[in-house]
Amino acid sequence: MDSLIFFYFAGIILVTATLVVALRNPIYSALSLLVMFFHVAGLYVTLHAEFLAAIQIIVYAGAILVLYLFVVMLLNVKREERIHRQSLVAVLLGATLLTEAALLVFQSKGPVFPDATSSGSAGEVTGNTESIGQVLYSTYLFPFEVASLILLVAMVGAVILSKKGLLDQKS
C-alpha cells in the first residue's frame, strides 16, 4: 500500500515536471508546476513530515508560483520561443546533472533513500514541527543564519534595483 502511494506521487511528479518544460503555453507550464508541488507535498506527508508539506504549499504554490503567473500574465506571453541561445548552456548543465544522478544511483550500496521509519523515529516522539525547530536552532544554526543573510542580501538588491530609476530621475 505504501509503495503504491509512493509510485503514484512519484509518477505524477515525473509527468508534470516533464510537462512544465514540454508544454507550449507558459500558463499551462505554471499550472503543471502547481500540480507537481502538491504531489511533492504528498510525498512529504507519507514521510510524516507534515510541517514541510504545509510549508511547501504555502511558500512555493501559494507565493512563488503566483508571482510567476503574475509575471507571465503581465507580459502576456502567448507562445514562448523554446530554442534560443541558452540551449547550449542547458545541454551542458543537464548532462552534468544527469551524470551526477546516475553516479549516485549506481555507486550507492544500500537503498538510495533511507528507510522513513528508522530516520523519522526521533520525529515521532516530539512531533515533526518541534524536531525541525530544535535541529534548525541548534545543530544547523550557522547554515540557518547564513541562509537568512543571503535572503537579506537578495532583499537589499531587489530594493536597489527597483529604486535605480528613481535616483536617476532625481539627479
Binding site: I27, L31, L34, E50, F51, A53, A54, I55, I57, I58, A61, G62, A63, V66, L69, F70, M73, G127, N128, T129
Partner: peptide
C-alpha cells in the same frame, strides 16, 4: 485534528488565489 491545523488553513487559502487569477486571465 491534524498537528499542523493552522498551517493547513493558510496553505489552502493561498491556493484560492489561483481561481481568481486564472478566472481573470
Amino acid at each position: 485534528d491534524i498537528n499542523i491545523g493552522i498551517l493547513y488553513i493558510l496553505a489552502f487559502t493561498s491556493i484560492g488565489a489561483y481561481g481568481i487569477i486564472l478566472g481573470g486571465w
